[in-house]
Design a binder for these strands. Structure first.
Lengths: 257, 257
DNA sequence: TGTCGTTGTCAACAGCGTTGACAACGTTGA
DNA sequence: TCAACGTTGTCAACGCTGTTGACAACGACA
């Protein structure tokens, strides 16, 4: 796991499915084996450095030139490892997902499926809190890489234990995954903006809504104290629980019918 | 409503709360009345044009230079109307929200609160489908403008009819609003990328996951047909229903207790 | 040893948001 | 009526971005 993180191990070598993240493989099909391996190592090293750079400098700091400086490489050399910046970002994102899966450790089938989903949601919360940059850039995307594939398999197999039909299983899997990704992406995008902007956003309720006329905005005025106090984390886990609960009930009715 | 849309009516003139979207007002406090008015009209016109430009050209097409061309204005002149591009985007986003609220029409208190929320979710779905650009750029932000204030008041007052405590009301209001915004933002960000990338994303399941080994990814293989078929819209409304349902049950237990 | 694919370096392009200077305009006050 | 001054529009420019193409040096294979 650690080796994968610092980028020394080519993930799942010999896998039947080529890493789709590596789109450059298409353009250079006659690459010699050990050259291919060297290129792979360079790619992995670049991904690790990009991850660290993103964590340190934020969205705006992750540019091809900065990454080149960090690697003592000419920025244009990176274009021999990645098709374009998008390709790089997806690879970095997939690495981040793989780390999150690793942190979950082993998942026993004895553990209630609801608790597994709660643990996944918690790891996703913490992972994004630790490094919002990458997820902010790619939360709407499919990496198709090994990290994502492992995460999909884990969540899907967990929902498969909820007693749902196959179609329902997929709906709730996607509901869970999309909600977690979208909500954490939302927070991440905000977290990667200027601190000044974040401050403006965080204090919006007290600045604006506390001053609204009670005649025109009665509900907002009546709930102003709670609106100011409520935390993003509370909202996030409330939504997660709502989805788990919906899957529970769908599974229960399916059992009865 | 139409007048507001095409930018002829300064929204809620004489409101006690100054439009926070207009941050430039701070920098020029001694502006003469009719000049202020003229500036306001120019702002509104620019917002309308930006909205149309975004709809036509997408995220990448909405640049200060392009907007200047469209308005027959020097691009730098826009910086006399908006503090920076962020200020412009928030203003455009708030206009978009106002349009969505307008489309909802009047909301009677006879209408079940659940149905009101469903209608709001539907309008949000359609509005973003029509013009994903703006929401893609600002879905993680608070505009603080009049459009947003009206939307907040509407959703909040709807949840206030669910029989929840004040704290619970706010939690479910935020859960609903954040989920709708985050999920539609997720779809919108994807919709504003290159068509080629979208295609890659849409076909990811059939391209990648259909080829996975059943030994390594049994759950993915078992559900591949359903994974390929399921629609974003189904997921979106499943999450909305899960939240409504959670609020319903929270309200019911609060009534009994 | 010669050949050819690969790698690293350099300059450059087109575009972006944004700033500052400067001239033209139009309202305001004497 | 005229001068003064704040406002507006225009221009050039800065620093930055992702990205491309050309060119020389390197290194493994025949």
């Amino acid at each position: 796991m650690i080796a994968c993180y610092i980028g020394l191990v080519p993930d799942t070598p010999g896998n039947a499915v080529p890493a789709v993240v590596d789109n450059r493989a298409d353009t250079a099909p006659t690459l010699r084996p050990h050259r291919e391996s060297k290129k792979h190592l360079q790619r992995e090293a670049a991904i690790s450095t990009a991850l660290e750079l993103a964590r340190r400098e934020g969205t705006a700091g992750l540019t091809m030139r900065r990454l080149g400086d960090e690697l003592d490489l000419d920025p244009t050399t990176l274009y021999r490892l990645f098709r374009d910046k998008d390709d790089l970002l997806l690879a970095v994102c997939d690495r981040e997902i793989a780390i999150t899966v690793d942190e979950l450790g082993t998942v026993s089938s004895d553990e209630p499926w609801q608790d597994v989903l709660r643990r996944i949601a918690e790891r996703a919360w913490e992972g994004v809190s630790r490094n919002p940059t990458v997820i902010a850039l790619t939360f709407a995307r499919t990496t198709g890489g090994p990290g994502e594939r492992r995460m999909v398999e884990l969540i899907l197999s967990t929902f498969a234990r909820a007693g749902l039909s196959r179609a329902q299983t997929v709906v709730y899997y996607r509901a869970f995954a999309d909600a977690v990704l979208a909500l954490r992406g939302q927070n991440a995008v905000l977290a990667t903006l200027d601190p000044e902007v974040q401050e403006k956003d965080a204090t919006a309720w007290s600045r604006i809504y506390a001053q609204l006329g009670a005649d025109e905005y009665p509900a907002a005025r009546a709930h102003i104290a709670e609106l100011v106090d409520v935390k993003d984390q509370t909202i996030y886990f409330a939504i997660v629980e709502a989805i788990i609960s919906a899957a529970e009930r769908a599974g229960a009715t399916a059992d009865q019918g």
